[in-house]
Design a protein around this nucleic acid. Structure first.
Lengths: 218, 218
DNA sequence: AATTAAATTTAGACAAAACTAAAAATTTGT
DNA sequence: ACAAATTTTTAGTTTTGTCTAAATTTAATT
């Protein structure tokens, strides 16, 4: 697998092409900041190799083998992210770019040893699940903070937007995974929230709330 | 810098092209298992970029900038090797291949943090010096075991041949860096040595002795 | 159902990095 | 010093991954 092939497989997976729901050429091109014609070329190549299902004009979806491959790349990406944060004191907004490179390193032993060094983490620094060696991963029941009713309490377990801009904003406002969140009030007008986070009270916009995942307390 | 450019720079450095001693196209091609014509093409490209001195038919040598670049790549390679051995329990014969990939990861912060995590090591698992951030490295006064007179004592500090075959052989015979070595007898006929290593006595061939570096005791 | 709009594919081209075969320069041997 | 051998370069191709522009198919709209 070349680096480029791996990036296509990963993107198709993230766009949902794993459930035999075909993904449009255009959507892939947009996500990868490339041209639809390039996607068509690669689609043919990946189909040749048995990684995707592809019929002209019908979009692309991953085969079983393609899904396995995607999960392996995602596993590497997320384990490296944990490594960078836990062992090298990177902040969660710094890890993505470097992990994009590290995920392509070819050595089964390397990633298994990293996994072991980190004590087999189940989630990455943004709260996303890390597939195990055999492709299984935990699906945590979580909801967007913006979808939660007033007066409920939960724990912040993930972010939807993982851009450095958003993550740095969260840092600045002391919003971190693991924090306890209670919704005190929801403003009808602009959907902004008045919340209590680890004791302190603060206001957050709908934009923010719709990019934070919480797990409700039982 | 592309990966290929980095590999050329590294090879030229290792062949001695850093002392403005030009290296022959053929020598580079052989070392890199490629064709001389490919080397010519790359030589032009690297000269364009100010990394090498190149005059037709006169071979290639690194510029100041080329040397700086080479040292930075070698620094990364060797730090990753230490990381693999010290933190992930790789054996010294396993590290080269993976480090060849890791050395191309582009992140200044990453390699500096790895350096820090390892407590700023000065030598890699094969005894080769690790350049510091500013390109300086220790040159240890060492000699090939085969060049040392009978009855002298020293410490094993490095290997010349770093092939997995040789390194595994050393492991099997409990020869490791840091071991104390005393030459008891040198066989005139085949230059083989009778040595004492950390107490135990053993015989080693000239082939072996000429690939082991020792630092003599004062 | 026909036409327009949008998405997708084809055809042809390009850059990077490699190769082969042939030409040119350098080195060697006598 | 000059022919032979070796080394190096040039010229032309290949592969991978990309692009543009044109053609084609599918989807949307009247």
């Amino acid at each position: 697998m070349t680096r480029s092939e791996e990036n296509y497989i990963k993107t198709i997976f993230h766009l949902g092409g794993s459930d035999s729901v075909p993904i449009a050429t255009n959507a892939i091109a947009e996500q990868m900041e490339t041209k639809p014609s390039s996607v068509t070329d690669m689609a043919k190549k990946l189909a040749e190799k048995g990684l995707v299902h592809y019929k002209k004009y019908q979009g692309v979806s991953l085969t079983e083998f393609g899904i396995k491959t995607a999960l392996s790349i995602i596993r590497k990406h997320r384990l490296w992210e944990v490594f960078l944060v836990k062992k090298l004191d990177f902040t969660w907004d710094e890890v993505h770019e470097v992990a994009e490179q590290l995920e392509h390193i070819k050595s089964e032993k390397l990633i298994d040893k990293i996994d072991e060094l980190l004590d087999f983490p189940k989630f990455d620094p943004h709260g996303d699940p890390i597939p195990s060696k055999d492709g299984k991963f935990m699906i945590r029941d979580k909801q967007l903070l913006s979808d939660v009713p007033v007066d409920t309490e939960g724990v912040c377990v993930g972010v939807k937007d993982t851009s450095p801009t958003f993550l740095k904003f969260l840092d600045k406002n002391n919003i971190a995974l693991g924090n306890t969140i209670r919704i005190l009030e929801k403003e009808e007008f602009d959907q902004s929230l008045h919340i209590q986070m680890d004791g302190k009270e603060l206001h957050i916009s709908h934009q923010i709330a719709s990019n934070l995942y919480v797990k409700l307390n039982d």
